[in-house]
């Protein structure tokens, strides 16, 4: 049970502090606007009620001066809010180099989490405090939205692509994880917890999960099982296919002239729909794997490809 009335969420990440400050500033401005309107309304309603004898002579007729005044004033205030909000938004959605990466799959009605070491959780996410954690998120069915109120971060998880989100927790403890995009019958219960731990505790936790293979190792097995290694493998000479070593995070020139950064979403697109992403200088011979691989398997393959090296700072 609770002992007090909650009216403000925890502020438990660097992201949360920055958004919180902006929110407080906007509450202040909103309060100011409301007070101004209420004060003007009350003053006029009292001074100029029917029974009041104050003079009504010399009604203001040149109204355009006032119109310009409050157009300029509101536009100025709004532009400040816009710039502030946009700066923070870009910062929120452009992940810095990550200390930890975690893969998240949303499905009706649970959050499945896979750590690179192969540790798996459902409706829970263990992370170390004071580390930049980058999430790579996929959906198996409908649109979900990954939301941690105490961190003020949120991003929809849309089927058919991968989304990224990052945070850096500043407090240890347990925080709510929610789905904020209506996703069907049990949407209300698609919730979990973020467990933020000190680094040593986190290391212990990872070790105690009884894992045999890392995500990349599992991906390597899939890589062989699905025949990817036949063309993309290190010793493959039969077919001229792009090497995947060091690919992640680099710039790729495609046959159609467009340019893509080889991030997780690109790798996913290439596996499922290779003919649309033929790399310049290579024949379009790769079969597509759509319908053969679930989101979990795709993430394992991507983890494997990433383990072959590349630029780590890739991200949107």
């Amino acid at each position: 049970m609770y002992h007090w009335i909650p009216f403000w969420p925890d502020t438990a990440a660097v992201n949360a502090v920055v958004v919180n400050n902006l929110y407080i500033a906007e509450l202040g401005l909103s309060g100011l606007i409301m007070v101004t309107v209420v004060a003007m309304m009350l003053t006029f309603c009292i001074r100029y009620r029917k029974a009041a004898s104050n003079s009504r002579a010399d009604l203001e007729t040149k109204t355009w001066r006032f119109e310009i005044l409050w157009t300029v004033a509101t536009l100025g205030a709004f532009l400040i809010l816009f710039v502030w909000g946009a700066q923070v938004y870009i910062w929120l959605y452009k992940p810095p180099p990550a200390d930890e990466e975690v893969y998240v799959v949303g499905k009706q009605w649970m959050w499945k989490v896979e750590h690179p070491g192969g540790q798996r959780e459902i409706d829970a996410l263990h992370v170390p405090v004071n580390k930049v954690v980058r999430l790579v998120m996929a959906s198996e069915d409908v649109i979900h939205s990954f939301f941690v109120p105490a961190f003020r971060i949120k991003h929809d998880v849309v089927p058919g692509t991968l989304e990224t989100l990052w945070f850096k927790a500043t407090k240890t403890g347990i925080f709510r994880l929610e789905c904020t995009q209506y996703c069907g019958l049990q949407h209300a219960t698609m919730q979990g917890e973020i467990v933020v731990m000190e680094a040593p505790d986190y290391a212990n936790w990872l070790d105690s999960q009884g894992v045999e293979e890392s995500l990349a190792q599992q991906g390597a097995e899939l890589f062989r099982a699905h025949g990817c290694s036949g063309c993309h493998g290190k010793n493959s000479t039969i077919i001229h296919a792009p090497s995947l070593t060091g690919l992640y995070g680099t710039v790729v020139h495609l046959q159609d002239g467009s340019i893509r950064v080889a991030d997780e979403a690109y790798l996913r697109d290439c596996i499922l729909n290779p003919r649309s992403f033929t790399v310049a200088g290579y024949p379009p011979v790769m079969p597509d794997f759509s319908g053969q691989l679930g989101e979990g398997d795709l993430l394992k393959l991507i983890a494997y490809i990433k383990s072959l090296g590349g630029k780590r700072e890739a991200g949107r």
């Binding site: 920055v18 958004v19 902006l22 929110y23 906007e26 509450l27 401005l29 909103s30 709004f78 809010l81 816009f82 502030w84 909000g85 946009a86 700066q87 923070v88 938004y89 929120l92 959605y93 939205s145 939301f147 109120p149 003020r152 971060i153 949120k154 991003h155 904020t180 995009q181």
Partner: peptide, 15 residues
């Protein structure tokens, strides 16, 4: 206005 402010919308969208 608060919802139009991008970073605040990230926090309160869908709530």
């Amino acid at each position: 206005l608060m919802l139009a402010t991008l970073a605040v919308d990230v926090s309160v969208h869908g709530t």
